[in-house]
Design a protein around this nucleic acid. Structure first.
Length: 111
DNA sequence: GCAGTGACTTTAG
DNA sequence: CCTAAAGCCACTG
């Protein structure tokens, strides 16, 4: 992957405010690389220990955590709940309430 | 170069 | 927003 891609994505993740969440696809597009959502995931999954990125604020387009059942998923959920993010009964987050940037607005604008 | 793989997304029902 | 199916792109063997 190009370094530009990684740098842009990492910079965006750092800008996600506490209590808000973004999605892989949105970040990829915002970074200038549409259709590279899977690579954002791969990038976050290969981050070295001790980084300062709020990776837990990144979920998929359905507002759910990836790799369910994993330890990191549980940890991610705890971190988000501590920031005030609410999970539905089906373990999903309302992107209309917590999505960043404003999910509904951006999608309407893109079309 | 082909086939499999994956922290994904979109469209349709 | 739930499920199912197809598309997508870089990486790996």
């Amino acid at each position: 992957m190009s370094p530009a891609f990684e740098l842009a994505v990492l910079a965006l993740v750092r800008q996600i405010p506490p209590g808000r969440v973004s999605s892989y696809g949105v970040l990829a597009a915002a970074a200038g690389f549409p259709r590279h959502a899977r690579h954002v995931g791969k990038l976050l999954g290969s981050l070295p220990d001790g980084h300062d990125l709020p990776w837990h604020r990144v979920v998929n387009s359905a507002g759910k955590l990836s790799r369910p059942g994993s330890e990191q998923a549980d940890w991610q959920r705890v971190l988000l709940e501590q920031e005030g993010v609410e999970f539905s009964a089906s373990s999903a987050i309302s992107l209309f309430r917590y999505g960043w940037p404003d999910h509904a607005y951006l999608r309407a604008k893109a079309r």
